[in-house]
Design a protein around this nucleic acid. Structure first.
Lengths: 126, 126
DNA sequence: CTGAATCCTAGCTGATACTG
DNA sequence: CAGTATCAGCTAGGATTCAG
């Protein structure tokens, strides 16, 4: 995942492809908006605008962009109800919910170590 | 963590500060280089150049930049040995190792769902 | 309401060169 | 070896506007 070992041998081709794909996916998901969306969706089914209200500071553009990416990677399911006005609902898929658990772990980590980080920063900023 | 609820009441001030700090930290850490560094460090103590070799594709600049950030937030400890040539070693602190577990979960998730994602992408890209 | 496209800016990023 | 500074290219990201 982190390192790449190329021996040049032919049977490494598949591993190399899988590794570069893993990296690509990791780069897709390891950004704050994507993770916050996954966290915000949780077990709910939310409309675009609800999601937007739910994630503080996210712009219209970033939300659509990341939702597309998450949909493309199969983490989010998009259900369009052809009414007027249109109603589009987003839900985490099973892989999405699985990832959400690790994201939740990251959020827990943040609140848990918040004091430690605050003091570490003060010490460093001198 | 994800949402902000401002009622304007005075006792919310602390909560609001903590929340914005949490967001800042989350934004710091939710980027691929930071997470890959945490993962690469693991339980080891590594020199700058070893770390650089260990993380495929990272530039000198991104590595120093992210190491500083991680050090500032107290995730990484930096030990300078005043020899010549200089020898600088990096190790995860306890909070760093704690975060590393969730990062490991994310890596596991990636390799586990790689096939699913690959097919999801093919379906989407049509 | 949802979403696409455009423009525009700030900031990230890599490459390179220089210091201790 | 480790770190810093500088420069140039590019991309992320916001604001706005138009369409279905």
């Amino acid at each position: 995942m982190v390192t790449k070992q190329f021996t040049g041998s032919p049977e490494d081709a598949d591993l190399a492809r899988a590794d570069s794909l893993a990296r690509e996916i990791f780069a897709d998901l390891a950004n704050k908006w994507a993770l916050l969306i996954v966290e915000a969706l949780g077990d709910d089914t939310l409309r675009f605008s609800d999601l937007r209200r739910g994630i503080d500071g996210i712009s219209h553009k970033m939300l659509t962009q990341n939702l597309r990416m998450l949909e493309r990677n199969g983490l989010v399911e998009r259900a369009v109800h052809p009414t007027v006005p249109p109603r589009v609902e987003y839900t985490l898929t099973e892989p999405g919910r699985a990832l959400r658990e690790t994201v939740a772990g990251m959020c827990d980590w943040t609140s848990r170590y918040l004091p430690h980080i605050e003091t570490a920063r003060r010490r460093f900023d001198t």
